[in-house]
Design a protein around this nucleic acid. Structure first.
Lengths: 332, 332
DNA sequence: CCCGATATTGGATACGTTTTCATGCATCTC
DNA sequence: GAGATGCATGAAAACGTATCCAATATCGGG
């Protein structure tokens, strides 16, 4: 049972033409109508599927798209991935996914794997600074960043949500409610948000109220709990992601802080459970899926005339986790 | 700037040996110590990275692992994917991910893409019956199912949670609390759970209380809302997945059913927000990440001596969404 | 009717690797 | 010492495709 795969040669033989002609017909080259039809019918009969392996070697690239995310478990990145997959699929391109864990070393290693695979298009949520990305550029890989920018890499286009506006809206909303001690609970790679946060808060900013966690749930919880314990005077917190928001809710509950009575909370990223929470969480919604989809579009369009980047709008969705600074937090 | 990629030929030339020797050294074949060292140093100097393209063509397989999931947005599948990625990465294998949307046609199409790519190992959460999988088997692709089995495909090993025990535990727990009208809110591909549900409920089973939704959130919500409206007499519901559970909570809230006073709820799959919910949700935890990891192990081990399948334990985690059937649901 | 232009076609080559096979050399056995 | 055995090695042949290039057939204009 030596089931050899049917190759272009078989089709050529069966159709009585040369392999070059078959290749041309199948990749849309010029051919006479009758030849074209004959080749197509024969190919269909033999159930011929061109081998990507041969093609890839010949054109020294593997068509596929590389997608590097910090954590595929995070629904935000899940939605980004979904967008990429949707767009890639409509173009018939396979997507190779890697999880960096927000670790630059890990990222560099995964980039190496992708290069080895001959991937010539990469979408990534970059971790750390942009040093890892020299090899892809050198290899001529079309690269697009998603959700975050990398320090020192403004030569790579990026598709991001309008963090600036989002943070500003959130801060304005909170200060508008009378809050003066507003904390920021951030994650990796949120430098820009931080600077906007400081800027928006102006004289009210308190560096002690700004704390960044690493990517993990544990780290997020520790950061939130530490913040709440050390600074019982804070009345509002802006969480820079759904993991951080989750941690904030959990830590608040553990410390017997009532939301929103004792603590107002705004979370970046609208997730389904934000509505299930009690109280339902006020959020800054980000178009995660669109970010992925647009990034894929950009990367598929290739190097030709690609814009500097894309900025997608965010939206403040008011639910029930913020209250005016009326009842101050009760002393323990 | 014709930056041709450094190839095995370059290394061979620079080291003064034949390409065969270089290949052998790099893939762990036999070679004299001095030759080996020379080749390795030269390869390192030239920063040589073997091209997967050439290798793949030669061995007519692309090493990579195909992963087909219904919905990468669902955190359950996100965790499965995470397990697969972790295992694959430790083996240095790239993973090509596709989202089937629980649609057999879509699945078949994606399988086609994978075959075209020369993927020779596939992990999948199968949609519908197993007809789509004939091509992979015919092509000699090592296939492993995850989380679900496919009807008529007991020739493919599967890594699944112990649904049987999970459903039985849940049903026993609910009936033990005195519930008699227990509903099952299911999704696609849960035939086995359904049969166990009927079996565990015995004479109490009521076919009208069994409803299955399609994969989407909307469909899940519609199913839950419909169920609750049509059968106000039910007192407990088992949701067969986090999407279904979410829909149940939402629908219950919309219809002013209090959990657990009016309605007891158990949800399959423990997700972070189950604890954030109020009341926190009693769940049947499934080792999603392990499912992915084990499936990847199986598929990496290859066709050699692979077991019929793997059954991973579930666990009932009691939180606050179930109550004894004391206060009956108030009539509207 | 002939010539140049154009369209179609097939042979041949290259892509980068792994693997087979034959060769040369050193060591071992009787 | 002759033959057998083992190992290291390199030349060469695939793997399946796309594309260059030359050759042939077709056509229009003069």
């Amino acid at each position: 049972m030596n089931m050899r795969r049917t190759t272009i040669k078989d089709v050529a033989g069966a159709a009585g033409v040369g392999v070059a002609t078959v290749s041309r017909v199948l990749s849309g080259g010029s051919a006479s109508p009758e030849t074209r039809e004959r080749v197509l019918t024969v190919a269909a009969q033999l159930d011929y599927r061109p081998s990507a392996l041969g093609r890839n070697l010949r054109q020294r690239r593997s068509g596929g798209i590389g997608l590097l995310l910090p954590d595929i478990t995070d629904t935000f990145y899940g939605r980004v991935a979904d967008g990429v997959l949707a767009c890639a699929r409509s173009a018939g391109e396979p997507v190779i996914v890697g999880a960096t864990g927000d670790d630059p070393e890990s990222e560099a290693e995964l980039i190496g794997t992708l290069l080895e695979q001959g991937v010539d298009r990469v979408i990534a949520v970059p971790s750390g600074d942009g040093d890892s990305w020299a090899p892809t550029l050198r290899a001529g890989v079309v690269t697009v960043f998603a959700h975050r920018l990398a320090a020192g890499r403004d030569d790579i286009p990026a598709v991001v949500a309008d963090d600036r506006a989002g943070v500003r809206t959130a801060v304005d909303y909170l200060t508008g409610l009378g809050h003066r001690r507003v904390a920021y609970l951030g994650g990796p790679g949120q430098e820009q948000r931080l600077s906007v946060f400081r800027q928006a808060l102006g004289p009210l900013v308190d560096e002690e109220l700004i704390v960044v966690a690493r990517g993990s749930r544990d780290s997020a919880y520790a950061a939130a709990a530490g913040l709440f314990q050390h600074r019982p005077d804070l009345t509002a917190v802006l969480a820079g992601g759904n993991l951080l928001g989750e941690a904030a809710v959990l830590a608040a509950r553990e410390l017997d802080l009532r939301i929103p009575r004792d603590l107002s909370l705004i979370m970046f990223d609208d997730v389904p459970w934000a509505e299930l929470c009690s109280p339902p969480l006020t959020v800054i919604a980000q178009p995660a899926r669109d970010i992925g989809y647009r990034a894929a579009e950009l990367v598929l369009r290739g190097g030709a005339r690609r814009p500097r980047g894309v900025l997608l709008p965010t939206e403040l969705i008011v639910r029930g986790s913020c209250a005016p600074k009326g009842t101050s937090r009760s002393p323990r």
